[in-house]
Design a protein around this nucleic acid. Structure first.
Lengths: 314, 314
DNA sequence: CTGTTAGCGCCTTCAC
DNA sequence: GTGAAGGCGCTAACAG
């Protein structure tokens, strides 16, 4: 019976049919728990992600789901609402033997402790917030991305540049804005331009906060001709601010975002594309390979390419 | 050992401590698969939801996660990207004995077939798209909500009303816009107003489509003084359109949305609130009770209250 | 090829 | 109160 279900050993076609018929008749379906017990696998992959209201997490999750959906594995979701939960959740995951593998999204955690608690659990990190040395990771070079965006602005003739982002010292320890801002500064330096502090604002991770910040920047007697917004969601807020002030995009103020979320398309936002959905797909595929071949994916880490998507705001 | 872990039988404190010490020393953690096998439970709850990029699904999911997080149950996600997948996914879920209960979000499915395949699986429906008779469901009265919104507009003196929504004949079989529109028509009738077809538009479920539709409505020689948008996401697009046309909200055009998603707050959108997060929390709590008491929650179905949230767009 | 059997790790029941 | 044994349903290994 086991043999025909799992197609493994050689079974005569005749017997196979007979078994299949019986299965069908009895309306039989295998008990996963038993299969797990004897096989030592749970056919479950855990995903740990921050409270996933932001489009970037949702899109990555979508990618993961895409590929797991085609596989024998289920996706169990562990979304973290408060930073303090990370440790406990991770401990549970590591300890309970309920997942065959774990994908961590954008969340900082201690590699040492993790390995101490459970050195055998396959873990893949997507969008690391810290240097990951012991696990495969899928990243982008945020600093380079910041430079890319800024240089794009500079090449189009902009000399006075503003920056809007979310808080650098956020409780979750996200670092993308920090790094993208670093790229921004670097590009400005290299071009011999001047960094104007008044044109640089960090605020809450909401469109409204970004809108307010942009409004302040653009209401000063001297205002920049272009703004780099470190996250697309916020860029939509900046666009709204420009509208508020009856300015035109991109003639009065150019805007470039970062991430290329779905909404960026509708809003014709020029932005730096990181392939969010793809990052999730890749991570899931790596995990599947790993679980399958019992071996680490190779290469063990990768920085996904970034590219400017030219639309209508620069 | 089992006894101390589950705190069940009476164990002398002394032995208890001894066992605990051993557990700690050996770094022991129970094998869930075995526990499931012998206990006949998976401690897992499945959630089936449409491709969850829309804020409403994400918020409901958040609510579910909130309460499961505090429980012993894991949440396994089955997001459906294409309508055709519903049947197969459901069949798998019903058949594989991998979940103790299932929460279905906004997805139509056959109750008969479901009960035939697995009459014992607890299922709770949140935001039904059809009449649910055999399972507990958490709903809102979309028609009444549409009336509520429209009457609110009428009470504020508006006599010429437009409507923007997403396609009524969408592949997933979502019905909220259809029903809300029905409420809209009903309220207009009751007030003795005239329904102007040119002011009613259905389009893709994107801000951009809504923006375009609103732009067309508002560019006609005679335009309405208020628009009811059946979904907040789309309402944001309508707001953008009004901006495009250099009109003011609410003086030139008033806008009321529906759902009260997070973004509605930032955008000061007046809207009909359905408690999205709460609906998820409630569904999950019902499920937990059901699993716990082996009995259906009571009442078996509920329509959540709706209320106008007055902000700045009417 | 196919029937049989020994675990997988836990919970529960039964003796002591 | 506590040790011992049976069984949950499946897979894998072993005889036929």
């Amino acid at each position: 019976m086991s043999r025909v279900l799992n197609g493994s050993a050689q079974v005569r076609e005749e017997t196979r049919q007979k078994v299949l018929a019986a299965i069908d008749e009895l309306n039989f379906s295998p008990n996963m728990a038993a299969r797990q017990l004897s096989g030592g696998k749970t056919f479950t992959i855990g995903v740990m992600t921050p409270f996933f209201t932001y489009p970037s997490f949702v899109e990555r999750l979508t990618g993961i789901q895409d590929v797991l959906h085609e596989s024998a594995y289920d996706l169990v979701l562990h979304s973290i609402r408060f930073p303090e939960q990370v440790g406990r959740q991770l401990h549970t995951l590591l300890t309970r033997n309920r997942v065959d593998g774990l994908i961590v999204l954008s969340l900082p955690f201690s590699e040492e402790e993790t390995r101490r608690i459970n050195p055998d659990l396959p873990i893949i990190v997507i969008d690391d917030t810290q240097a990951i040395t012991h696990y495969p990771s899928i990243t982008i070079d945020n600093v380079a991305g910041g430079e890319l965006a800024t240089n794009y602005l500079i090449e189009r003739g902009h000399r006075t540049l503003g920056f809007v982002g979310d808080r650098i010292d956020n409780p979750f320890g996200f670092v993308s804005t920090r790094r993208r801002y670093e790229g921004f500064r670097r590009a400005i330096d290299q071009a011999g331009l001047r960094l104007v502090d008044d044109w640089v604002r960090f605020g809450e991770h909401t469109q409204e906060a970004a809108r307010q910040n942009a409004r302040e920047i653009l209401s000063m007697e001297r205002r920049p001709t272009a703004i780099f917004v470190s996250i697309d969601t916020l860029a939509l807020g900046v666009l709204a601010a420009i509208d508020d002030l009856k300015l035109r995009v991109p003639d009065d103020v150019a805007v470039i975002g970062f991430d290329d979320i779905q909404a960026a398309t509708y809003m014709h936002l020029t932005t730096v594309r990181q392939h969010l959905v793809y990052s999730g797909q890749l991570g899931a595929r790596w995990m599947l390979d790993w679980l399958d071949r019992k071996d680490l994916p190779d290469p063990a880490s990768v920085a996904l390419p970034l590219e400017i998507v030219e639309r209508a705001t620069v």
